[in-house]
């Protein structure tokens, strides 16, 4: 009976095609270095899940942000684990995405017909850094506060439009409740939405073109 249900669904959804094209697609002889993209995506999903769990207790308000993070760490069962994974996963994700980029560069995988995959990859790297930058402020401790002060101040040194950028980032001339709120919004809605969309296109292109060959001597 399960077989029939499966066949009925497969006829309408096409699991088999998905399976063949996504997981069973032919690959050139490659190495572990070619798994970094998948690893980055795994971390993205993990960060998404642990991030959703963190919002159950976290409060993006200057009055409560620090205390709520403290509560997650000490008052909630396995809060230390969820936040720990999110914290270390963030660092690991930046590293993995960067090393993935280096791998693509050194194996010259960015060349025709994969230029767009590379350009979108740059977007993915920048949005990943954006996640790191916005997420860093959320615990609202001294390090977070001053790191964001410095980071936004650097953005403010741009000629002519610096002050505008600084105010736009901070939601005003100084770090305030507005800064925390907009960083939170950017961290959980705006940047992840962009990141997910870019990942979708990136993946589509990879499946369309297939993995690139490891370069040979004559290449």
């Amino acid at each position: 009976m399960w077989k029939n249900i499966y066949l009925w669904l497969d006829e309408r959804i096409g699991f088999n095609d998905f399976y063949k094209n996504l997981l069973d697609r032919p690959e050139p002889k490659t190495s572990w270095w070619n798994t970094l993209g998948s690893a980055s995506m795994f971390l993205f999903v993990l960060q998404g899940l642990t991030g959703i769990f963190l919002t159950v207790y976290y409060t993006p308000s200057p009055d409560h942000a620090y205390d709520s993070v403290n509560y997650i760490m000490e008052g909630v069962a396995f809060g230390w684990l969820i936040r720990g994974i999110h914290h270390w996963g963030a660092t690991l994700m930046v590293i993995l995405v960067f090393v993935h980029m280096l791998r693509v560069f050194y194996t010259a995988s960015f060349k025709y017909p994969r230029e767009l995959t590379w350009l979108i990859g740059i977007g993915l790297f920048l949005t990943t850094l954006g996640m790191g930058f916005t997420g860093y402020l959320l615990p609202w401790n001294q390090k977070a506060f001053w790191a964001t002060t410095v980071g936004t101040q650097i953005a403010g040194t741009a000629p002519y439009i610096g002050e505008f950028i600084l105010k736009a980032l901070r939601g005003g001339p100084d770090l305030s409740a507005l800064t925390l709120q907009r960083f939170f919004s950017a961290h959980i809605w705006i940047i992840p939405a962009i990141l997910a969309a870019l990942i979708g296109v990136h993946l589509f292109l990879i499946i369309k073109h297939g993995e690139s060959h490891w370069p040979k001597k004559e290449d």
Binding site: V56, A77, F78, G79, I82
Partner: peptide, 15 residues
Amino acid sequence: MIGLPSVFYLIDPAF
């Protein structure tokens, strides 16, 4: 390893 702790994390206040 992640799923089970997550469930306890969510329902912790009930305990």
